[in-house]
């Protein structure tokens, strides 16, 4: 356990070295939020409700996406694992008594906590600047359920993205293209651009069969109290089930991958 605590510490130290990088990354998130915000502002100039959402609900959604994304999507693991396998840098970890999956999960958590701190800060500033009307949940239970679903989403995203990166074991040359496609798919189908229930009903139903809505859309729906009672329990259970499935799948691919791993580079 202590070794992963040290990994956590060194991750933060490393993030602090790239001060400019970090600030720019945060700036990108803010700009993205503002773009989406003003886009919807425009839409609501002529409409009272869009796809069953009123202005305050959409604004709430956009602000929550910023916070949930910081916790769920941003992950240094997904930027590094593919290239570490391709270049053979993975060897550095494999010779040590260290779990590679645990190592990158720790580094992700470190980076997410740091990002989350800033996300909260940014949301507070933006909130103060624009004074948007945001709907807060009436029951504290919704907040707790939201936190649980967001943490499950974070773990789910980790296994989803890591298992996708493991493709590098078989095609060490071209992981970047695939990685990009996967990120875009996960972000969009996860609900980071728009709430998923604006989609046509059949598409929305189909998406429910994939793990993606559990990443962003459903945690926010829980926060907005769209999902309550028995359905809430059901959603949290399904989310946990996806985590287990993806964990087993990730482990399986990892084991298979190590057999074909070529430890390239000298």
């Amino acid at each position: 356990m202590r070794k992963y605590l040290t990994v956590f510490q060194i991750s933060w130290q490393n993030e602090f070295v790239y001060r400019l990088n970090f600030v720019l990354l945060r700036l990108r998130n803010v700009i993205r939020l503002l773009m989406t915000y003003f886009l919807w502002q425009g839409v609501f100039l002529t409409n009272q409700t869009v796809f069953g959402y009123n202005q305050s609900q959409i604004t709430t959604y956009i602000f929550l996406v910023l916070a949930v994304q910081a916790l769920v999507l941003s992950a240094p693991s997904s930027d590094n694992i593919g290239s570490e396998i391709g270049s053979g840098d993975l060897s550095n970890y494999l010779v040590k008594p260290l779990g590679y999956l645990k190592y990158w999960f720790t580094r992700d958590v470190a980076s997410k906590l740091l990002n989350l701190l800033f996300a909260v800060f940014e949301v507070a500033i933006l909130f103060f600047l624009f004074r948007p009307v945001i709907t807060f949940p009436a029951s504290p239970l919704a907040v707790i359920a939201f936190l649980v679903s967001a943490i499950l989403a974070m773990i789910l995203y980790y296994f989803l993205s890591v298992s996708a990166r493991f493709v590098a074991f078989w095609t060490p040359e071209n992981t970047w293209g695939l990685a990009f496609v996967i990120i875009v798919i996960m972000e969009t189908l996860g609900g980071s651009i728009f709430p998923l229930d604006v989609l046509p009903q059949p598409v929305y139903q189909l998406l429910q069969l994939t793990p993606f809505p559990y990443l962003i859309y459903l945690p926010i729906a829980i926060f907005s109290e769209k999902i309550v009672g028995l359905e809430l329990v059901w959603i949290l259970l399904q989310s946990s089930l996806w985590v287990i499935i993806m964990y087993l799948l990730t482990k399986f691919i990892w084991k298979k991958g190590l057999v074909v791993y070529q430890a390239s580079g000298r």
């Binding site: 202590r2 070794k3 605590l5 040290t6 990994v7 060194i10 040590k96 008594p97 260290l98």
Partner: peptide, 9 residues
Amino acid sequence: FILNKEIYE
């Protein structure tokens, strides 16, 4: 070095 110290206990 500190990280390796922890990794190797």
